[in-house]
Design a protein around this nucleic acid. Structure first.
Lengths: 349, 349
DNA sequence: CTGAAAGCGCTTACAG
DNA sequence: CTGAAAGCGCTTACAG
């Protein structure tokens, strides 16, 4: 059977032969080892350049026990949040010299943590970033398995209260609270919510933030003001329409993301409600298009790219530590704070 | 120096020892080799399961000369198109047993094909999918280098006329033509364009399609009806506003993507133009939100996920061929056809 | 049906 | 400063 890349791959031996040195010396040159005579160095470097030699990363990884690859378990890139996080991960990883092994999970509730991690470990990733939504017990399992296998693993988003689980997330409670406080400050008296799916941690937290703000503002919490969507715009329209029909006095809606907010505004237009005069609307994510919705949408900005980048730095430091002293590290979770971006959809309630 | 994953990685030798066979036999079991006695087979399988052994992919790849990894060179996941393509790639790759090495390029015009491909090849990827926009001479260089290195490479999108370059793309000329024909069929007499950046192949093609449809419809091509954006919504607003102010009789606009179409509609609202009565608007991509824009946006659907999936199947077949008979293969490019999705923004011009 | 030997391409101690 | 030897974890012919 012929070798894969037909043109007979160049090895360290070829370089050694041409340069008239041992493979060991070539290895020293490749790895910037100091103990190489100046003229030997230049000679070997010239040969490497002339031949166009590049060391085989696989062989090196095998021997060093480090692949300089990060396993990324991610979800639905069609969505804004996940793709932002991934962008941040990839960029920071590249800067730190890691390459990325991407594993997309399409149904997080079905994701099998064991199989996923086993396959990543078989590929000898140095660490894992687990960035799929927290649904069911996947995370607990992933945590167990990675600890048992001494595989550095960092979570992005999700429940930060799991003891000792390294996690970079966004303060979703603050998202719900700040958005609702903003609406109350504008004079809204009846604030509805279009929440994300119940089984999403993020959705629960944002809802809890809404309750918190109402209570703090001296208002009672009316659970009939909560409608649930699936993060998609059409679900936002349905939920918004239902809320507006059931509660004629509703004067504000907090939507769990900008897509659902778009749907809410659609429903409001269709019912002849003016935004923001009759109804104020706040979304979450601050997607680039939000500024050009009609009217421009107030939204909660999350630093998702930053979260991805921090996750990489964290897993990198865990990898470094496990090189020195194997064993589980305890790291307290980091929550990034959201920021309110005010636009026309909440001006002048 | 302690080994990376502290708990001393299990090897084929450990399994062999416990099962009381040679490593060779264990290898046969792992690889479903037929020549293994039934009882030996079950014994070894039991040991593998009990120990939780999984073969080291790196070592296997080193010896077989195949890593079962695909190098993906992709771009700006914040955008809808690229992330859809990547989703299609990842899913098909997983089905065919490939893992994905993701390399994002943030400025395609600066992408250095040589460095990128060298690093992918050093990691022994079996093939490459080049999915960054065609800007400058990157593609020509990538094609050269990959051919010289006998590295299977498939392009996604871009100019299909490069002789022999394996490519899966979308018929962008058809996008521009069909969108414009639709507007003309509705009775539009003056159709403006908000095009994507000039240096993007896709933008040029869509523009060419617009010209083609006008000419075919017996109308003259007025180049002052072309404004250029950067694919972002805000640029669409600026371009749309400028077109509407300069051409009071404009009755339709073809926008190069849905984000820019959103900006165009914003500009139209701001200027008091009713959509579609005064101005019909068509976008491209058919993003999920388009159906809930105000009004719902007519758009050109592209099968981007399908393009990604086909690219994987194509590179897989090239990899298979190069195993048998090394040498460049000539493959004719595939162009997927777009589809017009009609919504309110073009009904009743 | 099974095992001893050689080797994928590199690096790591160990001598000198 | 440099090289001969051993080995990372696996697979591939080659015997038997």
């Amino acid at each position: 059977m012929p070798a894969r890349n037909s043109l007979k791959r160049l090895t360290i031996r070829d370089v050694a032969k041409v340069a008239g040195v041992s493979t060991q010396t070539v290895s020293r040159v490749i790895n910037n080892h100091p103990d190489v005579a100046a003229d030997t160095l230049t000679r070997v470097q010239t040969v490497i350049k002339d031949l166009g030699y590049a060391p085989d990363i696989l062989a090196r990884s095998l021997i060093r026990g480090r692949s300089h690859t990060l396993g990324i378990v991610a979800f639905g890139l069609e969505f804004y949040g996940p793709s932002r996080v991934l962008t941040g991960i990839e960029r920071q990883a590249a800067e730190l010299g890691y390459s990325i092994s991407l594993n997309l999970v399409h149904r997080p509730e079905l994701a099998d943590a064991k199989t996923l991690l086993a396959s990543l470990q078989a590929r000898r990733v140095d660490g894992v970033i687990w960035a799929i939504p927290e649904i069911g017990d996947n995370r607990a399992r992933a945590r167990e398995i990675s600890t048992a296998a001494a595989l550095p693993l960092v979570f992005v988003n999700g429940d930060p209260t799991v003891v000792g689980a390294p996690l970079i997330g966004i303060d979703n409670l603050a998202i719900g609270r700040l958005a609702t406080e903003h609406l109350l400050a504008l004079g809204a008296r009846q604030v509805g919510v279009v929440a994300g799916p119940n089984d999403w941690w993020e959705a629960q937290q944002r809802l809890a933030g809404w309750r918190q703000a109402l209570t703090a503002g001296g208002l009672s919490v009316d659970e009939t003001l909560v409608a649930v969507g699936d993060w998609g715009a059409e679900s936002g329209r349905l939920a918004g329409q239902s809320l507006l029909e059931r509660h004629p006095k509703l004067d504000a809606i907090f939507a769990g993301n900008d897509q659902m907010a778009l749907g809410v505004m659609y429903a409001a237009h269709a019912l002849g409600r003016r935004i923001p005069d009759d109804l104020a609307v706040v979304g979450v994510d601050n997607i680039p298009e939000a500024a050009l919705f009609w009217p421009p949408l107030t939204s909660m900005r999350q630093r998702l790219r930053e979260a991805g980048a921090q996750a990489v730095r964290l897993v990198d430091s865990l990898i470094g530590e496990s090189d020195d002293s194997p064993g589980a590290q305890v790291v307290s979770p980091t929550l990034l704070q959201p920021e309110l971006i005010v636009r026309t959809s909440t001006r002048g309630v």
